[in-house]
Design a protein around this nucleic acid. Structure first.
Lengths: 195, 195, 195, 195
DNA sequence: TATGAATGAGCATTCATTCAT
DNA sequence: GATGAATGAATGCTCATTCAT
C-alpha cells in the first residue's frame, strides 16, 4: 500500500477524477459511478466526501476557478503600462488553457447547470474580476494611456477575446507559443487592426 | 379549435415552444411535456414531428442558426470598406440578440449537449462563416486596409468580441442603441484602444 | 381488451395490490416494483397515480380506514340498550376482520411509519371515534345502564378488547361465528367474569 | 477514558443505546451509526458484539421482554384469589410501562419487523404466558371463582385490555396511580360494567 | 392525425457491513 | 479489542418514448 493517501486524502483524487469526467461528458451526462471508477474507488466513497452530485460539481468548480485565478497574472497592483499588463494577463491565460484543457472547459462552459447559490458565487467572482479590470481601464484612460471608451464595454470585449482563445487552443490542438500569441493579440487590441 | 393551423403546421409551433423551454431551462432540465404544454398540444404529438428529444433540439438549433444567419449582414460580397462591413455585421448581430434573447441563448450556449453528428454540422457551419470572414480579412490585408496579422487569429478575436456582447445584452438589461454600440466597438477594433 | 378499467381506473387496482403487499411485507420491506407486479402494471405507472411510496401508503391507509368505519355499526345514534349497541359493534368488527384480513393488518399495525401529517389525521380520526364512544358511555352511566366508572378508561379497555381479537382471528385461523363471539364478549364485559 | 466499563462490558451499553434509538425511530429508520453514537462507541464496535442489525434488534427484544416478564407479578403459583392475582398483574404491568416507556414501545409495537425465527421465539414466549394465564383461568372457573367462559377468549381479552393501557400511559402523559388504576380495571373486569 | 396513459431503463443516493490499521 | 473509511447492493423515482384508441 502506498502511503500517499492519508485518511480523507481521497477528496482531491475524487475532484481530479470529476474534472476529467465532467469536462468530457458534461455535468448531466456524467454518472457518479464513472467518477468513482476514474478515481479508482467505490461509488459510495464519493458520498463520504460530497453530499451530492451537485455538491461535487460545485467543489470541482470552486477548485477549478481557484486554480485558474491563481495562475492568472492580474492586471491590477502593478506600475507597468496597461499594454504590458494586458500582455501578461493574456499570456498567463493562454498558458493555463494549454496546461489544463479539461479543467478550463468546466470553468468556461459548464456554468449553466449551477444552482442559484453557486451561480451567484460564480457570477460575483467574475464580477469582481471584471470590476478590477474596469477600474484599471478607467485609470489608464485617465492617465492618457487609453482612448476615451466606456471602460465596461472594453472589459466585456477583452473578456470575449480571452474566452475566444479557448476554442482554438483546446479543440484544434493549436500549437502556438503563448508569449507570441499574447504579443500579437495585445498589439491588435492596443493599436487596432486598421492599417 | 381554431383552424388557423393547417395539418402539419404544428412543426413551427413546437419549435417555437421548444426555443422558449430550452432557452429557459437548458436542454437537460427541459422536459418534452413542458414543450408540449407550451405548444398547446399533447405530449405524443411532439413525436409525430420529431423522432426524439435530441432531434427536436437539433431542429431548434438549425432553425435558430438559420434565423440568425439570415439576420446577420454578411461581411463578404460587397465593395464597402472593411470597417463598414464590420460595423454592419456587429450592428445586425446586436439587433438580433436584442430581438431574440431566448433563441440567442441556445445558439451561443447550449452547444455542449449536441451529439457528434449535430456538433459536426454546427461546427462546419461555423467554420464556413469563419472561413468567409477570414477570407475577407485576408483580402483586406492584401488591399492594405488592415495590418499584417494572422487572419484566422483576427477572426477568432472578432468572434469572441461578438459573442461577448450576448451576456450584457440579455442578462443585464443593457438598453443600448445598436448602431451606437456597433460604431464604438468597430472603432475600438479598427483603431485600437491605445491613446 | 376488457373495458372494465377506464382511463384512471388503475388507481383502485394499485391500492388493492398495495394492501396485499404492504400487509404481507410491511411498509419498509415492500418494494414499489412488487406492488406494480402485483397490480399487473409497470413500475412507472404507480407514480402516475401516487406521488411517492409514502403517498401510496397514505392512500391505502385512508382507503382501509374508510372501509373499516363504513363496515362498523356505530354505537351512537340509536335508542338501543348499551349492551345491544356494544354487541353489534363487536360483531361488525369481527365480521370485518374475518372478511378483510390483510387490510385489517394495515389499519391496526402499520401505524408507526406514518409521517406526522398522516399520523395526525389517523389519530384525530381515532380520537373522534373514541370520543363518540366515551360520550355514549357517559350517557349510559347517567341513565343508570352502566356503573360509575371513568368513561375514558372504559373506552380504552373496550378498544383494547376489540383490537385484541384481530390476532386470533387472522393469525390462527380462528373459525368462530361472529355473532356468537360478540355475544360472549359482550356478556363478559357487561356482567363481568366473576362468578 | 473512564475505566468503569470492563472489556466486553460494552454489550449492555449498546443494548441500552439501541433501546433508545429503536424505540424513538423504529427499527427501519434507526441507523447503526446512531446506536453507536448514542452508545459513545465506534460504528464497527457494534459488530464486535452483534452479527447484524437484526441480531442487535433481537438482543434488544430479548432483553426487553426479559425485563418485562421479570417485572410482572405472575398470576400462577400463588393461593391468592383470581381477582387479587389479576390486580397485581395489572398493577405491575402499569408500573413497568410508566417506568420504561421506550422499552415498552419496542415490546408491544415493533413486532412486525422480526424475522420468522425471532417471531417464532417471540410468539412462543407469548404463547407460554398466555397458556399459563389460560390455565389459571381454567382452574378458577373450576373452583367456581369465575363464570363459565372460554378460558382462551378470556385470556385474549385480558391481553387486549392490558396492552391497551400502553397508549394512554406513554403517549398522553396519563399521570395516574398504578394501584388505583389496577383496582378500577380489575373491578370492571370482575364485576362487569353493567349497573 | 392527435393523444396521454403506460412503460422501464437509468441513475442518485442510502446504509448495513467489512476490514486494514 | 476498537475504529471508521470504504464499499456496493438495493431501491425510490424520473422522464423519454411507445402505442392503443
Amino acid at each position: 500500500m502506498n502511503e500517499v493517501q492519508k485518511p480523507g486524502g481521497k477528496r482531491p483524487i475524487i475532484i481530479e477524477a470529476a474534472v476529467q469526467v465532467f469536462s468530457e461528458k458534461g455535468y448531466h451526462n456524467a454518472r457518479i459511478e464513472e467518477v468513482a471508477v476514474a478515481a479508482g474507488i467505490g461509488k459510495g466513497t464519493v458520498y463520504e466526501y460530497f453530499d451530492s452530485k451537485l455538491h461535487l460539481f460545485q467543489a470541482v468548480m470552486e477548485n477549478s476557478v481557484e486554480l485558474y485565478y491563481d495562475s492568472i497574472i492580474p492586471v491590477e497592483g502593478t506600475t507597468l503600462s496597461f499594454e504590458e499588463r494586458l500582455r501578461r494577463l493574456i499570456e498567463s491565460h493562454v498558458r493555463f488553457c494549454q496546461a489544463n484543457r479539461e479543467l478550463t472547459r468546466i470553468v468556461f462552459w459548464d456554468t449553466e447547470i449551477m444552482d442559484s447559490e453557486l451561480k451567484d458565487w460564480f457570477l460575483s467572482l467574475r464580477k469582481e474580476k471584471e470590476d478590477q479590470l474596469t477600474e484599471v481601464i478607467r485609470q489608464s484612460i485617465h492617465k492618457g494611456e487609453l482612448r476615451q471608451f466606456d471602460p465596461y464595454l472594453m472589459t466585456v470585449m477583452l473578456g470575449g477575446i480571452i474566452t475566444s482563445l479557448w476554442g482554438p487552443i483546446t479543440l484544434d490542438n493549436w500549437s502556438i507559443d503563448a508569449a507570441e500569441l499574447a504579443s500579437s493579440i495585445t498589439d491588435m487590441i492596443m493599436q487596432g487592426v486598421s492599417a
